[in-house]
Nucleic acid binder design. Structure first.
Lengths: 227, 227
DNA sequence: GCAATGGTTCGTCTATGGTCGAACCATGAA
DNA sequence: TTCATGGTTCGACCATAGACGAACCATTGC
């Protein structure tokens, strides 16, 4: 009697704590090996192997074998989007009784979320874009205004190839550390890449921290100062 | 070591087949009583009661008591969005090996999905809007173009109050019966309401079918003919 | 008052599935 | 070859949680 795809199966896959930990660990976009994921999830290698097999079988993960290492990554952007959507409802429902956020100040200041900038700087970027009228809409889905189109183009973001993409151009992602929004979507990704390219910031290896240089932070503030 | 909201808990809530059936049954937007939901899920009243209690406790459902009837509905649009996102990944991963869609031709032709139009007519509407340049973007998130703004305004949709809303103005929703997109978001909802108001169509009670009158269908084709 | 209907609570049964120990394959290096 | 490391498979154990029967509360109508 049921119609539509088997949503329960997918949700149950995400619904196990160990697997959920693996998935959120992969939300930053890169691939991790099986043992790294086992450590992330806090289980032994055997159980991790079982979970990873089920996740790939279920189509949520993609496996790449390189020598004796098995790398896993999220299978497509929509998987990440679904995880973000679940985070959104979890955050708004269960409220802030969950831990208020990462304890590491650097993590809280600027970190990567899937493939875009999160943390205080991410929130600031979003709120500046909102205040300057570059984006409109207050939900998870945003529309890019003409002013925003002009501003991002001027900043050096090539918008046309992004619009060709199947990926949402412009989306808000709930920042669970601050319970505020930050900018996700194709533009969010392109902006972070641009920060890297300009030498404003770099990704600390083995961590989600995005480390801005003093000059980079100053330049960022010049473009996106709040208010 | 985990950070962020407890995504596993929410996902596990959705991950049970009985509960998932209840949730998708509620995706059309109205409220259903406990016994109706029990029937939808294919379980007895007792088990349904337990599931419903957990869903409301988890913040996914909202309960309204009217006399001796308990009505349940989805708790907010983001819950529906999360369900749609899960449907998206489920549909694209597990592929069309799941039943290709509703068997009832009327259901396949025009039905309600959460609160907007789905089925063949929904897909046609989306593709016309895409072809006419009213919307841009090919992912789940769309931007309304100026032409689209003009077109929908001319059709009689008041866009300004929608933009105030927290709800996404314009979004694509994957139609799992056709594996194509249809138009969701605030505009999708407003359009369907407009079809009702104009007397073009009505909702068949107790079903998801949207029944167009011959004149209504003709008028619809006049506005949104494909090609 | 009584009966009927809609929902919930309690107790029990059962099975699914998450976990780990141990053994087993595969790759790469000495 | 031998050894070490990264992953998987197998088997057994155990807890959770989903299912229903029965009884219980609440609302409506007679």
């Amino acid at each position: 009697m049921k119609e539509g795809p088997d949503i329960a199966q997918t949700a149950a896959l995400i619904g196990d704590p160990a697997r959920a930990n693996m998935l959120v660990a992969l939300m930053d976009g890169h691939a991790l090996t099986a043992t790294e994921l086992a450590q992330e999830a806090g289980v032994t290698k055997q159980t991790a192997s079982s979970h990873l097999a089920r996740l790939t079988e279920g189509g949520l993960l993609k496996r790449e074998v390189q020598g004796r290492h098995h790398y896993f990554r999220l299978n497509g952007a929509d998987v990440g989007a679904a995880l973000e959507a679940l985070m959104g409802v979890s955050a708004s429902r269960t409220g802030p009784r969950t831990r208020p956020g990462p304890r590491d100040p650097a993590l809280r200041h600027a970190r990567v979320c899937y493939d875009h900038l999160a943390g205080e700087m991410g929130v600031q970027l979003y709120e500046h874009a909102q205040g300057a009228g570059w984006i409109s809409g207050d939900g998870t889905v945003l529309t890019l205004t003409e002013a925003g189109h002009a501003a991002f183009s001027e900043f050096g973001i090539a918008l046309e190839p992004l619009q060709e993409n199947r990926r949402p151009l412009c989306r808000a992602c709930l920042d669970w550390s601050m319970r505020r929004h930050h900018l996700a979507g194709g533009i969010g990704k392109a902006l972070l890449q641009s920060f890297y390219d300009r030498g404003w910031a770099r990704r600390l290896p083995g961590s989600r921290i995005v480390s801005f240089t003093p000059q980079g932070e100053r330049a960022f503030q010049g473009y996106f100062r709040a208010g």
